[in-house]
């Protein structure tokens, strides 16, 4: 697996072969609080970079999750239906949202690397 790349909307994406694994960052889950529901797209749906791809709900509110890359959804994390709290406990691991089969992996190049993202988060405070 490659090192993760990050969006300004606090999603992460990393390559696992030709699949791009997508989730939300630790900062995002900490801001949301306890996740109680995750709505994931159907497999086969084409998602568009920067457009909503999923919805994550805390006790308090629903928030959109935006696609960090464009292409077809190949897999979704069904385990989140039974245990959405995985998004809080392991956002970069078991709390992943979906996988996209990526024809053009250079899409990741325009996203922030970990150091740039940490700077970005620090500047929010």
């Amino acid at each position: 697996m490659t090192a993760p790349r990050f969006t300004k909307d606090h999603e992460w994406v990393r390559l696992d072969g030709d699949l791009a694994v997508i989730g939300i960052t630790d900062y995002a889950q900490s801001q949301l609080g306890d996740v109680v529901y995750v709505e994931l797209p159907e497999i086969g749906r084409h998602i568009e970079q920067g457009k909503e791809a999923a919805v994550v709900e805390s006790v308090k509110a629903a928030s959109d999750v935006y696609a960090p890359v464009s292409d077809e959804v190949a897999e979704i994390n069904d385990a989140l239906a039974a245990d959405p709290a995985k998004v809080n406990s392991d956002p970069m691991g078991e709390g992943w949202f979906l996988k996209v089969r990526l024809a053009d992996p250079t899409q990741l190049d325009q996203l922030m690397d970990e150091v740039a993202y940490q700077h970005f988060v620090e500047e929010l405070h």
Binding site: G33, D34, V36, S58, V59, K60
Partner: peptide, 9 residues
């Protein structure tokens, strides 16, 4: 709106 333990707790 919440303390560090969170709304659920």
């Amino acid at each position: 709106v919440q303390y560090p333990t969170g709304i659920l707790a």
